[in-house]
Amino acid sequence: MTCSEVQRVLPEMMDGAPNNELQAHLEKCPACSDLVAELELISIEAHQLVESNEPSPRVWLAIAAELRSEGLIRDPEAKPGRPVLVPTERRRWNAWWLVPVAAALLVAASYVGMRKPATQIAEKPAVVAPANAPDLAAQSNQQKPAPQVAETKRPVPIDRSLDEPSVSAPVQVVSTEDRQFLDDVGQRSPRMKAEFESQLRAVNSYIRDAEAYLKQNPGDEDARQHVMAAYEQKAMLYQMALNHIQ
């Protein structure tokens, strides 16, 4: 068998039964042997990629919402009419948790603005801050200073984050703000609280992993994108929770 014959039969032989003629040629031809070895390596490594990506929490939330609206989920807790469980007066007192919402949204938005071309932003699903979120956040700031927001969330401005070691500071699995927010959600529905808590844990882990990876690979554009995506996901999660509660 010659090298050009190998080229011709390789597509058929690569994943098929062993062929003596081919084997004999590979043993004496380093070029063809290297080629086959490299193609096999690509094939083997590719299979390791099978489950390497995690969808954002919005996917499950959207699926669950759709299943509910189609009546495929029968929620034993569901009550007709979905009463408003957080009265306006009470919300004003609890508006403090809009601070992390606004912070996460601002971080995501500023990072998107700084790092993403406009076309890519347009491709992303809309992550729109509630019109009143910054105002409410400011309002709640007046009512209750929240220095711990910056401390626990570490939404370090991303342009600085690449140079500063603080970027890798651990994000708590569920931070104090998250916990307080969850308590508010829980007042509406324990089931909803459990759902959001699980999603928050996932997204916080993602933030932690992404920041750690960015620290290890400060020049890697993908690593930056992951940090940005992680904060976007958190912002999205808060936004969806807001939509449920309001």
């Binding site: 099978v50 990506n53 969808p55």
Partner: peptide, 10 residues
């Protein structure tokens, strides 16, 4: 969903 989300999304 949780059992299969990574593979499906990937």
């Amino acid at each position: 969903y949780n059992l299969h989300k990574r593979r499906v999304y990937s």
